[in-house]
Each structure stands twice: as C-alpha cells, then as structure tokens.
Amino acid sequence: MKAKLYLEKISKVFTDGDHEVTVLDELSLKVNEGEFVAVVGPSGSGKSTFLSISGALLSPSKGRMFINGKDLSKESDDKLNEIRLKNIGFVFQSSNLIPYLTVLDQLILISVLAGKDKQEAEVKANKLLDRLGLSHRVHHYPETLSGGERQRVAIARAWMNDPEILLADEPTASLDAERGREVVQMLSDEVKLRGKAAVMVTHDQRVLDLCDRVLYMEDGKLVENKR
C-alpha cells in the first residue's frame, strides 16, 4: 500500500541558551492511503512540533519527509507553499477564520488561491457546509458563530482543495461530545472514501475508537498507544 505521508528518522533540536533540547528523536511514521491515525500524549511531548513538520510548516533538524513519495527536503520555499496549499489540509485548535469574510467566502478563498474556478468552488463549499450542518450559516461572519460552528467551518475549509493529507490539531476541542464524534466520523469517512490520509493530534479519548491506529508520543518518538 502506498504511503501518502512518510516521516523518515525525523529529529528536531531547539537551542535554549547554551543548551540543546531534543523534541523529536529519529521519529518515523508512515500513513497509508485511506488511513486515519491519532497521536496522543501529554502537553510538551512534541506533538505540535511533529504536526508542524508533517505539514511542512517547520523544517526538521535531521531526517526527511515524503508526500506521495516526493522528498520535500529538496523543494524551494515557493514550492513548499504550493504543496501546503494544494496537498495538505490543516485544522488547528484555534479555527483561524478571517474575521471579515463570511463562512462561504472562507472556503471559496482557499480554492481561488489554488487557481480553481470560483463558481465550482462555491458549489463545493455549499456541499461541505451542508454536510457539516452549517447551511444556515453560509452568509454569517465568524464573530456571530459559536466556537463549535467556527471549528466546523475550519474543517470544511481544510477539505476544499481535496488535499492528499489532512492534519488536525485537537479538532474536537470546542465541540460537545455528540458533535465532536460526528466531525471525527466525517473525517474518517472522507479519508476512506477519497483514499486520503489523516493524522489527528488529540486529547479526546471519546473519539479514538474511530481511528485506524492510535500512537503515543514518548521521548520524541511515536509508539503504540499504552491506553
């Protein structure tokens, strides 16, 4: 089975004054087509750094990252920007919505930036928003939405460019149990239906059974979950 995402012996070292702090230590991970992986672990264990490197937002100190077999360590900054826009969908703990754009325009903008047709983008955006129970909010602005609604908009936005990989950082943090489970189920269904790959960092034990694998961040590496 083809790996959509492959991290090969990734290390990340930060300098703190005269000391070096190793956050990731030769971490390796393969996420295959149609696979939904959860990563758990205590605060400060390196989960956010791991996710940032997986999304090509942060360069590793050592090791290589591949998307669909392509080695990103050889790509220019401009090319990495294009890869992030077209091949990676992000859902952050904070929804990061643009305050002066309506819900619908939040999604359309992502596709327009990727050079796609605006009318086609609008049709797709409306379908995604309807699926996430937001069809009645398409013309609203972020300040008028609840925290859960803002997060659902962010999840719909992440799927707009049909990315190969979706990376989610605590996507259920602002959702109640029922809605959080619905959202994670939707992510899982989309991954399998479309042959994508997803990695979710979470503390939400209620949704782990919806994932194909659960890994634990320990000493800068990923190991099988010790629940």
Rank of each mutant, 00 (worst) to 15 (best):
S188W: 08
R64S: 10
R157T: 02
V37H: 04
G44Y: 05
G34S: 05
D212I: 03
L97R: 11
Q151M: 06
I10K: 00
G89E: 13
H140I: 03
A125M: 11
S45N: 03
M200A: 10
K116T: 03
M217P: 00
R194F: 07
D130N: 15
T22M: 08
M200G: 11
E178K: 15
K221I: 00
L129I: 02
L193C: 07
S111E: 14
D162H: 13
G17A: 07
Y100G: 12
L166G: 03
L145R: 10
V23K: 03
S52K: 07
R206D: 13
T22R: 10
S174R: 12
G44P: 02
I165H: 08
G46F: 01
L222R: 06
L129V: 01
K124V: 00
G89V: 04
A156T: 02
L27V: 00
E33S: 15
S94K: 13
D71S: 10
E178M: 13
L208Q: 03
I110F: 06
A125W: 11
N87V: 02
V223G: 05
K30I: 00
L208E: 01
L222G: 01
V223E: 05
I108F: 10
S174T: 04
E149A: 12
Q185N: 15
V31H: 08
W159K: 08
A114Y: 01
L51W: 07
E224T: 05
A121P: 04
D77E: 15
V214G: 01
V138D: 04
R181H: 05
E170T: 05
A114C: 05
L132E: 00
N87H: 14
N68Y: 09
I10R: 03
E190V: 09
E82F: 02
E82G: 02
D209P: 14
D18Q: 12
E190C: 04
A56H: 10
V103Q: 12
R131C: 01
S52T: 06
A158D: 05
V103H: 14
Q119L: 14
F36E: 06
L80V: 06
L51D: 09
F90R: 12
D219L: 03
Q106Y: 05
K86W: 04
D204S: 09
L57N: 12
K30T: 02
